[in-house]
Computed example of a mutant assay.
Amino acid sequence: MTTPLVRIVDDDADARSSSSFFLSMMGLEIKEYESAQRFLDEDDMNRPGCIILDVRMPDMTGMELQVKLNQKNCRLPIIFLSGHGELDLAVHARKRGASDFLQKSAKPERLL
């Protein structure tokens, strides 16, 4: 049986490392991606797990990646992280199937 994988897609290296460190300390397997395109190019989306996705990234935003994943019928749960309290984006992300939308300043326990 394949263990679930938490994928962290964020252009901010410090944010990726912080989330990755906390979640790996909780016993989860983590894979980091610095861009949405790198995630699309390298990830095995058939492996169970979830995606922790930054909203604002250069080249392809998290919202644009969510649309592409929906078009590919990817069923991995998405948790958006945003550095801003963007209510409209949160509503749109949830309507498109995101599991949650959290601010980056949220307590790590909430992310878990």
Results as ranks from 00 to 15, higher is better:
residue 57 M to G: 07
residue 30 I to D: 05
residue 18 S to G: 09
residue 81 L to F: 03
residue 40 L to Q: 09
residue 42 E to I: 00
residue 48 P to F: 05
residue 51 I to W: 02
residue 58 P to A: 11
residue 12 D to I: 11
residue 60 M to P: 02
residue 87 L to A: 05
residue 15 A to P: 00
residue 41 D to I: 04
residue 56 R to W: 09
residue 93 A to S: 02
residue 59 D to S: 08
residue 34 E to P: 13
residue 102 L to T: 02
residue 65 L to R: 12
residue 110 R to A: 12
residue 77 P to G: 08
residue 49 G to K: 12
residue 78 I to T: 09
residue 87 L to M: 02
residue 109 E to C: 01
residue 43 D to K: 05
residue 66 Q to L: 12
residue 106 A to Y: 04
residue 66 Q to H: 11
residue 47 R to A: 13
residue 28 L to C: 11
residue 16 R to I: 08
residue 59 D to F: 04
residue 1 M to E: 13
residue 27 G to A: 10
residue 51 I to G: 03
residue 41 D to T: 09
residue 73 N to Y: 07
residue 96 R to C: 03
residue 47 R to E: 07
residue 27 G to C: 06
residue 65 L to C: 05
residue 69 L to F: 05
residue 47 R to C: 09
residue 44 D to N: 15
residue 77 P to R: 05
residue 23 L to A: 12
residue 68 K to T: 05
residue 14 D to F: 13
residue 8 I to A: 06
residue 23 L to Q: 11
residue 91 V to G: 01
residue 41 D to Y: 01
residue 14 D to M: 14
residue 97 G to N: 07
residue 17 S to V: 06
residue 112 L to N: 14
residue 64 E to S: 10
residue 41 D to N: 14
residue 93 A to W: 07
residue 93 A to R: 07
residue 85 G to P: 03
residue 80 F to G: 09
residue 67 V to R: 11
residue 11 D to G: 12
residue 107 K to P: 00
residue 93 A to G: 04
residue 106 A to G: 00
residue 44 D to V: 09
residue 40 L to M: 15
residue 40 L to G: 02
residue 108 P to C: 04
residue 70 N to Q: 11
residue 75 R to D: 15
residue 76 L to A: 10
residue 80 F to V: 12
residue 45 M to Q: 14
residue 80 F to I: 11
residue 73 N to Q: 15
residue 6 V to L: 13
residue 4 P to F: 05
residue 88 D to I: 05
residue 30 I to V: 13
residue 68 K to C: 03
residue 85 G to C: 02
residue 66 Q to C: 06
residue 35 S to R: 10
residue 45 M to A: 06
residue 34 E to A: 11
residue 99 S to G: 03
residue 35 S to E: 09
residue 63 M to N: 01
residue 81 L to R: 14
residue 96 R to T: 01
residue 103 Q to E: 09
residue 7 R to P: 00
residue 5 L to R: 13
residue 84 H to K: 08
residue 83 G to W: 08
residue 112 L to P: 00
residue 110 R to W: 01
residue 96 R to D: 01
residue 78 I to W: 10
residue 55 V to T: 12
residue 21 F to R: 15
residue 79 I to F: 12
residue 22 F to V: 15
residue 109 E to F: 02
residue 64 E to F: 05
residue 52 I to T: 11
residue 112 L to W: 11
residue 74 C to F: 02
residue 33 Y to W: 06
residue 82 S to Y: 08
residue 87 L to W: 03
residue 28 L to N: 15
residue 53 L to C: 06
residue 106 A to T: 11
residue 25 M to G: 08
residue 83 G to F: 09
residue 77 P to K: 05
residue 53 L to P: 04
residue 78 I to E: 12
residue 103 Q to F: 00
residue 91 V to A: 00
residue 45 M to Y: 02
residue 25 M to D: 10
residue 43 D to G: 05
residue 51 I to P: 06
residue 108 P to I: 03
residue 103 Q to A: 01
residue 106 A to L: 01
residue 64 E to K: 13
residue 21 F to G: 07
residue 38 R to T: 10
residue 30 I to G: 04
